[in-house]
Design a protein around this nucleic acid. Structure first.
Lengths: 245, 245
DNA sequence: CGCCTGATTGAGCTGCTTCAACGGCTGTGG
DNA sequence: CCACAGCCGTTGAAGCAGCTCAATCAGGCG
């Protein structure tokens, strides 16, 4: 958990392997991009999103303080985003799975405010923000889509604030599992059984509780036949009851 | 605290008194709008922001479920934004003072997700979002400004998540007071002495604690000569010590 | 095989909540 | 003008949800 102290505020994005790709041929386009794009629109998209980047498990996609140039779409794998206070306090602000976006925290100040760390070997599409902005000025649907993405992030964060501010540990864990389940479902994965890529400690750090409490809640749900948890493999047995917790 | 249950999801924005105004002549323009606007830019702005609205203390500017049409800039007064869970749980997601924005939560789904309630008699500028989007397509500086505003909201919310997830009650209240102080200062008000427009209960609801705990922390800070609190009037006596809490 | 990380479970502690009482301020109506 | 109701804030006492500390175990990897 210890890391070199943050001293340099603005650093260039570290060099990384890139690889040609095409949005027009991407199967997760329907998730990242606005619907109803014309062939013309797709060509424009392809012209700005021309590279991907692989990030190995535990490595950072970007760190707080790095100069902001691009946003990212998770193409495969998953990430956590972590804010860090000067006193060393850490908080996980979110987990991102395939089809979700990363990096919007950087627009505001021109440098990133969080660390984004891969939970498993992952691949992201790199979307240069300046070029995306230019594209938005000529493509109304794309413009609106970006506003919606950012607003969606704001709304998601506000529900997380409500979770942190008003729910018991039991309710937080239940909400977390149901939310993950929904997101897996939306991306065509199984919603009743899935594999957690994060540790109990990371879950706790996201939900504002200690890892022991997370573990106890998992055990409790198991005793009550709501969830079957075997290490990182989770099977949701009774989603309705879980939602009523 | 009781309210009529929310049944209709999409309702038109309620009729409201409007009044002609001009961004070009507004003293808080430097806070709401990007810097370096030309006379031409200002004329364009004036053409879309042509009305204000007064909201009396306790009244809502908009409610969760209302159709989203505009964002708002607080011109005078202050607001709280409240998310409500189906089970009646309420959480204050933020307080907005003069020069700050409201309503970005609506872009995502086309209807608002929160209630925005005036803490005192207040006035907002109404900025029709569709027209703003159009303006952004031709004005690069404005486009970037809106992205920055939204990203800033995302970053702010993430610090609030960290606060809720990792800090003790004492640290939360200290952080809250220092944050308010900074915002007042940025707007040209006194930063060492100010008047809280919200009740202890609303503060508690924002900080994820009970009103009694908020009150106890105020008393504690007073005993320790960090803050002088007389009802809603707050004087910050030792800001450095408060930051070290 | 042995080491290390991550997960589980128990026992005791504590910070915040709950419940309750009370005092001050404000607005209202006689 | 005063009396009174209702809200807001403060403070105390007791309870409990989640934390801390600690021991144990399982799985992965060199």
């Amino acid at each position: 958990m210890t890391r070199a102290p943050k001293v340099v505020l603005i650093r260039p994005v570290q060099p990384a392997p890139v690889r040609a790709t095409r949005c027009s041929a991407c199967s997760t386009r329907t998730i990242c991009m606005p619907p109803g794009l014309t062939v013309d629109d797709l060509a424009k998209l392809d012209s700005i999103i021309c590279s991907t980047r692989s990030v190995k498990r535990g490595e950072t996609l970007y760190r707080s303080g790095y100069a902001f140039q691009s946003i990212y779409a998770v193409r495969a794998g998953s990430f956590k985003t972590v804010v860090m206070h000067r006193d060393g306090r850490e908080h996980v602000t979110g987990f991102q799975i395939a089809g979700e976006s990363l990096g919007l925290d950087g627009v505001c100040a021109g440098h990133h405010n969080w660390d984004a760390i891969a939970l498993e070997d992952s691949v992201v599409c790199i979307i240069p923000f300046a070029q995306l902005e230019a594209l938005c000025r000529e493509m109304k649907s794309m413009q609106h889509h970006i506003y919606q993405m950012m607003s969606g992030e704001i709304v998601r964060e506000s529900s997380q604030m409500m979770l942190l501010g008003t729910m018991t540990a039991e309710q937080r864990v239940a909400t977390f599992l149901l939310n993950l389940s929904l997101r897996f479902k939306a991306r065509g994965f199984l919603d009743a059984e899935f594999h957690l890529r994060m540790t109990r400690e990371e879950i706790g750090c996201y939900l504002g509780m200690k890892l022991e409490t997370v573990s106890r809640m998992f055990s409790k749900f198991q005793r009550e036949w709501l969830v079957h948890a075997n290490g990182k493999t989770i099977r949701i047995v009774d989603a309705e009851a879980l939602a009523r917790v």
